[in-house]
Design a protein around this nucleic acid. Structure first.
Length: 213
DNA sequence: CAGTCGATTCACT
DNA sequence: GTGAATCGACTGA
């Protein structure tokens, strides 16, 4: 069986470019997640760029740790982190090895595997909410820390891949400040989304948590 | 080694 | 619009 060129996973050199180039170029492309129960496919509609150790908003800002080690490795691998005690978020490592850049996959439109996604997203009242937000996206796609370090350029059999497909036209891509990022990292317009798409998550500024009593 | 808080989501008012 | 949930990574002493 021969895969069409559009179904070919993006090669490593796609991700090896500067993260600000890669991030908008991912919009409109298809993320394929092969779960134990079957495939789920999602059209990417919203992403955020995190630009290495110099970026105050990035997990890599304070250098390499056990958690973020994958970000310092070769591009095209998945960086999955656990946050707020209950959620996971999925990134793809970008730039030359060692630069610790990555793209946070924030939202998308489920195209294949609605049943599988819905099973994991029981609170979703509409299809467009299945992957509307980074933790929702990871939940819908059954992504957790066991996928941290997965090579998304390993081929069609990889549990995770982004297909070549066709990116969203640049005139439909919008940019703005990153969501929920605090401090100096909040100012850069490094969030990218497809204009008017109903699966894009709402923007929220960072709010410092109040102290527990 | 205790304290703080997060690249968020959900229920509820 | 507001606050709770929930836990592990990171910080600074």
């Amino acid at each position: 069986m021969i895969e069409s060129p559009d179904r070919t996973p993006l090669p490593r050199n796609f991700f090896e470019r500067p993260v600000l180039e890669v991030a908008p170029d991912l919009l409109g492309r298809t993320l394929v997640r092969l779960t134990d129960d079957g495939p789920i496919e999602l059209r990417l509609t919203e992403v955020e760029a995190y630009a290495g150790e110099a970026d105050p908003g990035s997990h890599a800002f304070r250098g390499r740790t056990a958690r973020n080690a994958v970000m310092f490795g070769p591009p095209g691998h998945a960086y999955v982190y656990f946050t707020y005690g209950m959620w996971h978020c999925l990134n793809l490592v970008c730039g030359p090895e060692g630069h610790a850049s990555g793209v946070l996959l924030r939202a998308g439109e489920i195209r294949v595997g609605h049943e599988l996604a819905r099973k994991r997203r029981l609170s979703a009242r509409h299809d467009r909410e299945l992957a509307k937000g980074p933790a929702r996206l990871a939940t819908a796609l059954d992504v957790d820390r066991t996928l941290d370090g997965t090579d998304a350029c390993a081929g069609p059999e990889s549990p995770l891949a982004v297909l070549t497909g066709t990116p969203a036209p640049t005139d439909q891509v919008r940019t703005g400040p990153r969501t929920g990022v605090s401090g100096d990292g909040a100012t850069h317009p490094w969030r990218f989304w497809i204009d008017g798409d109903p699966t894009v998550s709402p923007y929220r500024a960072h709010v410092p948590r109040r102290r527990r009593t």
